[in-house]
C-alpha cells in the first residue's frame, strides 16, 4: 500500500491535467476491473463485479487531481507569474522548489531576503501576486523557449516515510483515496461496486457530479483526505481530526449536509467492527460529496477522510494506520449499503 501511494503521489496531475495519474491507475487496475471508461471530463469510471449482486448500487469516489500552479504570464525579466490551481496558502509557497512543465524544469518561488525586508514587514507574508517562479532565465525570450503560459508547475517534493509510521509527500490529497480504491478493485469484492476516479476536485467545478450522473448510484462513498490540526498546543475543539485515530467521517462541511443516518451508519459500523474512526469535528472544507449528493435526483453520500496534516502543501503528512483503517471502514460500508 505504501509503495502504491508513493508511486501515485510522485505523479504530477493537477485539475484538468489528470492524464498521467489516470493512465497509471488504468494500468494498475485493468486486469482486475470488469469494465472501465473515461468520460468527456476525464473521469475514470470503473465497474467491478463482486461475489454477490448488490441490492443497491454503490459508488466510491476519489479524486485524481492535486493542487499545483499554473503559469499565467512570462515576464520581461524571465520570471514566470502564476496562479494556484486549488487553494494553496502563501505561507507554504514562499521559498519553495518547484518543477515546471512537462520537462520538469527546476525552478523556485523566491522571496525578498529577510535582510532586505523592512523591519516592520519581517513577519508579513508576501502578497500572492508579488510572487513569481524563477527558472534561471534572464529574459522573456529565454523563458519562452522552454515554458508557455498555461503550463503547470508542481511542488518539488519527495515521498518520505518517517517517525512512527507516517508518510510525507505532495499530493497525498487525494492519491491516498485513489490508492484505497485501487486496493479495493484488486481485491475480491463481496458486492458489485462502481468506482469513480474523478477530475477537477481541487477547483470544485463538479466533474465528479457528472460521473455520478453517469453511474446513478443509490449510495456514494467519498474517499478523501481532510485537514488535521492535531499539533501540540492546539485547542481540542480546533483540531478537526487527529492522526492515528482512524478515518474521519463528516456530518457537515462547507458543501454538504450529510444524512444523519449515513453519518451514524459509518461510525456505528466502525464501532461494531472495532475499526478506528472519528467524526470530523469542524464544519470546514468541502469535497466531491458536494456535487455527488445533488446529482441525478439526489444520492445519499458519506465521506471518509484520511486525516492529513499540512494539507495542500509540499509536505502533506498522513499515518499509514489511518489509510488502512479508512480502507477497512469503506470496505465494510460497501457491505452495509449494498444490502441496506
Amino acid at each position: 500500500m505504501t509503495d502504491l501511494i508513493k508511486r501515485l503521489c510522485l505523479l504530477n496531475g493537477t485539475s484538468g491535467r489528470e492524464d498521467e495519474v489516470r493512465n497509471f491507475i488504468i494500468n494498475e487496475i485493468k486486469d482486475y476491473a470488469d469494465s472501465l471508461s473515461v468520460d468527456n471530463l476525464g473521469n475514470l469510471i470503473v465497474f467491478k463485479k463482486g461475489r454477490k449482486r448488490a441490492k443497491n448500487k454503490i459508488m466510491l469516489d476519489a479524486h485524481m487531481d492535486e493542487v499545483a500552479f499554473m503559469i499565467t504570464c512570462i515576464n520581461s525579466d524571465g520570471t514566470l507569474s502564476f496562479e494556484s490551481v486549488g487553494g494553496i496558502n502563501t505561507a507554504v509557497m514562499t521559498g519553495i522548489p518547484v518543477s515546471v512543465g512537462k520537462d520538469k524544469i527546476s525552478g523556485v518561488i523566491g522571496v525578498l531576503p529577510i535582510h532586505l525586508t523592512p523591519k516592520d514587514k519581517k513577519q508579513d507574508l508576501p502578497s500572492k501576486s508579488s510572487l513569481c517562479i524563477d527558472i534561471g532565465a534572464a529574459s522573456y525570450e529565454e523563458a519562452r523557449k522552454v515554458v508557455s503560459p498555461g503550463d503547470c508547475a508542481y511542488f518539488d517534493s519527495d515521498f518520505v516515510q518517517f517517525g512512527d509510521g507516517y508518510l510525507k509527500s505532495k499530493a497525498l490529497d487525494d492519491r491516498a483515496g485513489c490508492a484505497m480504491l485501487i486496493a479495493l478493485i484488486k481485491e475480491e469484492l463481496e458486492y458489485d461496486a462502481y468506482f469513480t476516479f474523478s477530475a477537477g476536485e481541487e477547483v470544485g467545478y463538479g466533474a465528479a457530479g457528472a460521473a455520478a450522473f453517469t453511474v446513478k448510484p443509490d449510495y456514494a462513498i467519498v474517499c478523501e483526505t481532510t485537514t488535521a490540526a492535531d499539533l501540540a498546543g492546539v485547542d481540542e475543539n480546533k483540531k478537526v481530526c487527529r492522526l492515528k485515530c482512524g478515518g474521519a467521517v463528516s456530518f457537515m462541511d462547507r458543501r454538504t449536509v450529510y444524512s444523519k443516518d449515513m453519518f451514524d451508519l459509518a461510525l456505528d459500523t466502525a464501532n461494531k467492527l472495532g475499526i478506528p474512526a472519528q467524526p470530523k469535528t469542524m464544519v470546514a472544507g468541502g469535497n466531491n460529496a458536494g456535487h455527488i449528493h445533488k446529482t441525478a435526483g439526489g444520492i445519499k453520500t458519506v465521506t471518509v477522510s484520511v486525516p492529513c496534516r499540512y494539507l495542500h502543501s509540499p509536505s502533506c503528512v498522513v499515518s499509514v494506520d489511518d489509510v488502512y483503517s479508512s480502507l477497512n471502514l469503506v470496505r465494510a460500508l460497501i457491505g452495509e449499503l449494498a444490502d441496506a
Partner: peptide, 27 residues
C-alpha cells in the same frame, strides 16, 4: 516566513527527519 511545510533534519544522537508545522487556514 519560508519555514512552514519545509523538511528538516534534526541533528540529535542520530539524524531525525521532520516537517516544519504549517498552521491550517482555520487557525
Amino acid at each position: 516566513r519560508v519555514l512552514p511545510a519545509h523538511e528538516v533534519i534534526v541533528h540529535g544522537k542520530e539524524k531525525v527527519y521532520g516537517v516544519i508545522t504549517s498552521i491550517p487556514p482555520h487557525l
